[in-house]
């Protein structure tokens, strides 16, 4: 450590002190978050490795297949839904929960980024991670014989965006209302339950009637059904078109109302 001259005074330095441009601040935070997500071993496993494992597993094993669809197509649809839930819900809940406990959210509120910039950066970071997931999972799927139709991919984009809103808001709801330890447990358990028994890996239509009625009300089932319709040529379930947007709206409203920026 040295003792150099005093730091330059504001007046003497090039450029007046002030905030960076709004988009630059949001991009700065998004890159910081995305880098953090992709460089963290646990997060990397949840965001990339686990979906890859599920993709390979569903291609190889006779699980969740629908009549008339190629196994790789239904596997890609289920994997896309898994990746979305892992990134938007589990990863964001855990990261935001720890940020909240560590006082990061309080500090952020005092910087030029502010709370709105933090949330905007977080959304952008999620989309960045999605982009990485699409590249990695797409490459693996292509290697496994996936040959997507352009129209189906295009139709999946709005589903993907609404799904991001639904699961992102639910992830923030968990992070902003529960204690950190509970956030960790709830986000992981819910993720596993939604993927395994929530209509993602196995379509709700395969469940017994009573259970099916319940599962079809879950956002995971709606997301899985819609992605299967887009990517595996399945029928569009009318209920899913209503259920997923409703979860997105309800989740957003609950976050706005209940999210606490400081930990209790």
């Amino acid at each position: 450590m040295t003792t150099p001259a005093a730091p330059a005074s504001p007046a003497a330095s090039a450029g007046a002190p002030g905030p960076a441009a709004p988009l630059a601040r949001i991009a700065q935070h998004a890159l910081f978050e995305a880098r953090g997500l992709l460089s963290n071993g646990e997060q990397l496993m949840v965001a990339i490795l686990l979906p890859v494992g599920i993709l390979v597993g569903l291609v190889l094993l006779p699980i969740g297949r629908t009549a008339g669809a190629a196994p790789v197509d239904t596997a890609v649809a289920a994997t896309a839904a898994t990746a979305l839930v892992s990134t938007c819900f589990t990863s964001q809940a855990i990261q935001t929960g720890f940020d909240r406990r560590g006082g990061v959210l309080r500090w952020v509120a005092t910087t030029p980024l502010g709370r709105s910039g933090y949330l905007a950066g977080k959304i952008l970071a999620t989309l960045m991670v999605h982009a990485v997931q699409v590249v990695v999972l797409g490459a693996v799927a292509l290697a496994l014989g996936w040959r997507p139709e352009a129209l189906g991919l295009l139709a999946a984009v709005p589903v993907w965006l609404v799904g991001t809103a639904a699961f992102g808001s639910l992830g923030l709801l968990v992070a902003g209302t529960l204690r950190t330890e509970a956030v960790l447990a709830v986000s992981n358990i819910v993720f596993v339950l939604l993927v395994a028994a929530g209509g993602i890996a196995v379509p709700a239509q395969s469940y017994p009637p009573l259970l099916r009625a319940v599962v079809e009300l879950l956002p995971s089932s709606a997301l899985g059904d819609l992605l299967r319709a887009c990517l595996a040529g399945g029928e569009v379930a009318a209920g899913a078109l209503v259920v997923l947007p409703l979860w997105a709206i309800a989740g957003t409203m609950l976050v706005v109302r209940s999210f606490r920026w400081t930990s209790v």
Binding site: P7, A8, S13, A14, G15, A16, P17, G18, P19, A20, A21, A24, R25, Q28, H29, F32, T111, P112, L113
Partner: peptide, 11 residues
């Protein structure tokens, strides 16, 4: 990262 939130941060 913190420095990047400002227009003319310290070195």
């Amino acid at each position: 990262y913190g420095a990047g939130l400002y227009r003319a941060p310290r070195d």
